[in-house]
């Protein structure tokens, strides 16, 4: 099973976790991306919303579960075939929440181009923006190294058997 381990800088990441947790708590009761199908049957829509919310809750619990007591000892988080998909989706949900709630004064073009200088942001926006970038980096790492696992699906699910034993990867995102 392919697995990547990422070494994070505790002094950098730990302060972001409070905001991630707070955003995650809000998303316990709120779909990150709006449901846009206005004309579907009301009962069906409610079932739909409930299932999306249940899935989103599961994703966020998995993501926040990475930052457990072990993480605070060694600063390492691990991604593999079993959690890659759910973590990538959780990152997307949290980034949507951060963008709409905490970073709403930034222009879309700024976010899409990556042309934001964090040092020039107002202090209140710096942590949300770091969080936003951090989650995007996690997504990129997973997509870069575990995309075949995501496309294939969890172990046991049918799908083409591709390179299955690519060994472990280690990454160091320690910025200190």
């Amino acid at each position: 099973m392919k697995r990547i381990e990422v070494k994070l800088s505790l002094p950098v990441v730990a302060p972001l976790l409070d905001l991630m947790k707070a955003s995650s708590d809000v998303l316990e009761a709120q779909i990150a991306a709006p449901i846009t199908l206005d004309d579907i049957d009301a009962d069906f829509r409610e079932d739909w919303r409930a299932e999306l919310l249940g899935g989103q809750q599961e994703e966020l619990h998995a993501l926040m579960g990475l930052f457990n007591s072990d993480f605070f000892i060694n600063g390492v988080v691990a991604f593999d075939e079993d959690n890659a998909e759910i973590i990538v989706r959780a990152c997307s949900a949290l980034r949507l929440r951060l963008r709409r709630h905490d970073l709403d004064i930034l222009e879309d073009e700024q976010l899409e181009s990556g042309g934001v200088d964090i040092e020039r942001l107002p202090a209140a926006l710096q942590k949300p923006f770091m969080c936003y970038v951090f989650l995007g980096t996690i997504q990129e790492l997973i997509i870069q190294h575990l995309d075949t696992a995501i496309l294939r699906g969890p172990a046991g699910e049918s799908g083409p058997a591709e390179d299955d034993d690519e060994g472990a990867g280690d990454f160091d995102l320690d910025k200190d």
Binding site: L96, R99, E109, L111, E140, I143
Partner: peptide, 18 residues
């Protein structure tokens, strides 16, 4: 599918493939 400024190009490609 409508554009959003949050989800990256790589992520959207992955979703379409999946």
């Amino acid at each position: 599918v409508l554009n959003d400024p949050v989800n990256s190009m790589g992520y959207v490609v992955l979703v379409f493939r999946k």
